[in-house]
Design a protein around this nucleic acid. Structure first.
Lengths: 344, 344
DNA sequence: CTGTTAGCGCTTTCAA
DNA sequence: TTGAAAGCGCTAACAG
């Protein structure tokens, strides 16, 4: 082979340049630079190579390496909405837990749209990500996710997906809902209501049944609307809370909003209606977003372990990549009692 | 060439498979699939190719394409700390503004550590990102950033970098600081103080001089500590506020915390000291993080246009990639007056 | 321990 | 309009 003929297009220095300067064959350079194989290179050859490499400012081309090895050291992360405060810690945790392995997350956003998710999965596969973490699963996405998982390991995070064997790292929303009902019960409430999040996102039906189940067993009355929110946002919290107040039936003494943002919306409506929290109505959120402890009143809520979910997802990815089948994780909820709930 | 011999390792369908099924040469498939060159393929050949492609479920390998073309359609995004609430909207905005071009962000975190930044820059270059957006610049990073910019377009976002010609999209922190001082002045305050953020992050000295400059001109007295925070966090806000109260000098009637988190820390200290906000002390933050409007009292602050910064950075990247030299952007601050500031 | 020989999947001249 | 051949920069299997 004519080594001289190999040239650089990227304005970069290639393995061949290093080889030429060090006076060895390119594959020897390849070995010397690979931590797993550098033992098979004589010490002083390796030193000569390292020397040449640093002198030329050589930097391996990970794209070329990826083409050859089939691995890109990148993890696709698919979130529904990066604007959501509880997503950031997931990415944060994930990034931290995979970076030691030299991997980097590649991020995309579905906007909770099934077709966008389809396109993104396809795009990520085309980019040959080594694995994907899906933080955006909705009940209707099962089929395409399982299909994608045929090509590359997929971890389901944060939003549970029913009816699948894909590895999941989630949180026990059912138990969280139950704990909230129990808490309200202990405070003496007997007539309560939920502001329910979108039904397609499995967390919310789980919270609903956890809460509803306890109410049923303990004999609490539920004034919950038939309706589920379109999205888990402040606006939807406002809308549902307003509908609840507008109903002719007796007003519940405690409200469980399915997440903190909806609780915030509800808080606004209650304030406008002249109702005090918690004196007139107790209010509970979910997620424990940063700063809800500083609200007035400080919000009682359930801590959602976003950071741990991200970290665990990263570990699961690594297990999958090394051929292990990681076990599922269902992280414990923790009730954070603050000032927005009180004795009846 | 022996086409039959080419095979797939990734379990995927290659261009060659499509070519074989369509009964044409691979390069014809390549043309037919490239929007820029498909005109040069006879209509019915192209149809036959498209047909074969969809029937086989062909998906182009972006890594292989990237190796050949030198473009990866990925943008490196380097943030200091993904846990910071004002970073999310930047990534959100950026992702949105580049995704139409089929690009995806690849994210890493410096933890505000210079060596980590160096490693990350190197790593991103090795991955052949098409451009980088740096949201983590510190004053000492100038040299390595300019060096990186020799290999690939670099956009500086959110944190200003002095003494460089790299394109920047930032926010007028100086003016923001000035507006806050003016606001306090109008409320009758004449003895004020700053809780200053880390000096290595250029936003903070700018806020400081904007604020200080106005005070000087308008004759307000400044009781600011000599010290700058180590990091822009709640804890540091707590620490500096405590130090300020512990001093024997007369207590200022208004505090400008250099960001909302530090303001939160200050709020806690003031509360513990039995001081009411804003009756005894007015307090101003910076950033307008989500939810600070719901605090008690709702925080007066300056809106930081994170989303727009991200979007603009995305546009600048696209301009750079198409060979244009984008102009710098210095987005306007907007004072958001809420309940934490009042007449003296 | 090191060199040789083939590719990874695609694009891109250059011919035909 | 299509085919042939040559690589992008690297790794890997096999000799030696």
């Amino acid at each position: 082979m004519n080594l001289q003929a190999r040239s650089r297009t990227n304005g970069g220095v290639t393995l061949f340049d290093v080889a030429r300067l060090a006076g060895v064959h390119p594959s020897t350079v390849s070995r010397a630079l690979d931590p797993r194989r550098q033992a098979r290179v004589k010490d002083d050859t390796r030193e000569r190579i390292m020397d040449a490499a640093t002198r030329l400012g050589y930097r391996p081309d990970l794209i070329a390496r990826g083409l050859q090895s089939g691995r890109t050291a990148s993890i696709g992360v698919i979130a529904a909405d990066l604007g959501n405060l509880f997503v950031t810690p997931i990415i944060h945790g994930l990034t931290g837990s995979i970076e030691a392995a030299g991997m980097l997350p590649m991020i995309a956003e579905t906007q909770d749209d099934h077709h966008r998710l389809t396109r993104i999965l396809d795009h990520m596969l085309a980019r040959r990500v080594d694995a994907m973490v899906v933080v955006a699963a909705r009940s209707g996405d099962l089929a395409i996710l399982e299909k994608a998982a045929l090509s590359v390991p997929v971890v389901i995070a944060a939003r549970p997906l029913d009816g699948t064997r894909l590895p999941q790292v989630i949180h026990d929303d059912h138990e969280g809902g139950r704990m909230i009902a129990e808490h309200l019960h202990q405070l003496g409430h007997t007539w309560v209501a939920q502001l329910r999040g979108p039904i397609e996102v499995a967390n919310f039906p789980r919270r609903a049944t956890g809460f509803g189940g306890y109410c049923h067993e303990a004999g609490l009355g539920e004034a919950t609307l038939d309706m589920w929110a379109e999205s888990p946002t402040i606006d939807e919290g406002t809308r549902l809370m307003q509908m609840l107040l507008d109903r002719p039936t007796r007003r519940p003494t405690a409200i469980f909003a399915h997440n903190d943002l909806m609780a915030l919306g509800a808080l606004g409506v209650l304030g406008s209606a002249g109702l005090r929290v918690p004196e007139d109505v107790s209010l509970v959120g979910y997620n424990d977003l940063p700063m809800v402890g500083y609200l007035s009143p400080p919000l009682t809520t359930v801590r959602y372990p976003s950071l741990e979910i991200g970290q665990t997802a990263g570990l699961m990815v690594q297990q999958l990549l090394s051929g292990e089948r990681p076990s599922d994780h269902n992280l414990e909820p923790r009730l954070v009692v603050r000032g927005s709930t009180g004795q009846i």
